[in-house]
Design a protein around this nucleic acid. Structure first.
Lengths: 248, 248
DNA sequence: GTCTGTGAACTACTTCACAGCA
DNA sequence: TGCTGTGAAGTAGTTCACAGAC
């Protein structure tokens, strides 16, 4: 959150590895969107794309896009645009997508089941390599080609499969215990679908997705729109912000 | 961020409807968290809770919580804390949860199937009242007590069931067409799980959840942590932000 | 002329620190 | 005294507008 420094070398001019850019959180959250848009454009055969065009494809304004990309370094050409292939490569590098990251999923209930088979993970470089559950009745069940193992095997699985990211899809009551076990097993990134706050050490990153919260936020806006249009001085229904994207 | 006025009457002394508070987006996104924490506390039997206590339960700091709640009005007592029941009622009112909002889900594939059965919706006041899909093979299938109907019936369903929120869980290629149909049917809030940008009129609110993006953000942080600890001058793994919550 | 990269202005959000009420 | 509510200060993020490379 503090200073932002782009691609140039850091103080202690070290090797050939580009210094790791210190990107604003908001930028990081948008890079995956740009990447997806670029992949779509790449399939369309374009070699280069203007900030205006890419911004439109990603649903942001062009000034924001240019500033975001400028944090990665200069990969555009003035008067021309950005080289699609080069930019894809660069964003994938920064996001760490050039290395395959193994994911384990804990909790194979209703939601976990769907996540286990979600195409979007595999198609974007993430592979679920282990399914775990506390319920003995589920252990052994094969879901999308992977057998469910018992949660007690977590530590062993984490080592065997070099788990990078743990996904928690258990009920809220079990989530903290699972998080503790993930942390103990050396996992430092957690995606939490359980509706609860997790407490973890400072070096562990947690992201939370709560589907009901999203609906509640929409509900607020419905309520707001209804109230404003019903009010005497109410202006036309053309409200404030729409198209809020998720991401901290 | 203009005026904040609590439950009392608005300027143009109209009816008994309290003026609708103009809350910052960031605050809105946190209200559901506070609500969940309050419900947990309420079950524990507490009548009042301090900002410190509620903040801890919701995973934020207490100054932020107090400022957020102050936007709703004064529902705390200095020297004591907040009345749990009163605060729950107030937050539910603002979020529009006192009226039941009907949800329709379009796309009953892998993910849609899970969403149809997701407990978290029902338990927090949202009822999925219709399932729709373009695939004739799926039409008629009963999922969690609800029969799948054909997407062409959308307009009819929207009226019959007074749909307030549409959830899109189709593949990316179909999402824009579905969004257009939802808008045409008068739906003004959309939750989009498809990995694509939707374009909608200004009065329609869209929120997007992209599960792969969440993983990519975590991947970035994994990459960052790995790079920093590997660097000569690398500081200890105790990184910057963790526990990022989703929400714009 | 075109379109990127970026200082500067602006807006939104967070945190501090304390006045003031119970 | 204890704790809320809130101005003021600080920080992060966005948008503008234009210099400068192609």
């Amino acid at each position: 959150m503090s200073q932002q420094r782009h691609g140039s070398t850091p103080g202690s001019g070290s090797g050939n590895v580009p210094a790791f850019p210190d990107l604003p959180e908001a930028t990081i959250a948008r890079l995956p969107e740009y990447l997806r848009a670029l992949h779509n454009l790449g399939e369309g055969g374009s070699d280069t794309i203007s900030s205006e065009g890419l911004a439109a494809a990603a649903g942001v304004n062009s000034a924001k896009l240019r500033k975001d990309l400028s944090h990665l370094g200069s990969y555009g050409t003035r008067g021309v645009g950005y080289d699609v292939a080069l930019l894809i490569e660069q964003i994938e590098y920064v996001l760490g997508l050039d290395q395959r990251r193994a994911v384990c999923l804990v909790g194979v209930g209703n939601l976990g089941h769907a996540l286990a088979g979600y195409d979007g993970f595999a198609s974007r470089g993430f592979k679920i390599v282990a399914l775990l559950d506390a319920d003995e009745a589920k252990v052994g069940e094969v879901i999308h080609g992977l057998a469910v193992r018992h949660i007690d095997e977590l530590a062993q699985v984490a080592v065997e499969e070099s788990i990078a990211i743990g996904v928690i899809a258990t009920p809220a009551g079990a989530a903290q215990a699972v998080a503790d076990e993930l942390v103990a097993a050396g996992v430092t990134s957690i995606l939490n679908f359980a509706p609860c706050v997790l407490s973890v050490p400072a070096n562990v990153d947690v992201r939370k997705v709560d589907l009901a919260i999203e609906l509640q936020i929409l509900s607020f806006h419905e309520h707001r729109k209804a109230t404003l249009t019903a009010l005497p001085g109410g202006r036309s229904a053309t409200g404030a912000g729409n198209q809020e994207a998720v991401g901290s």
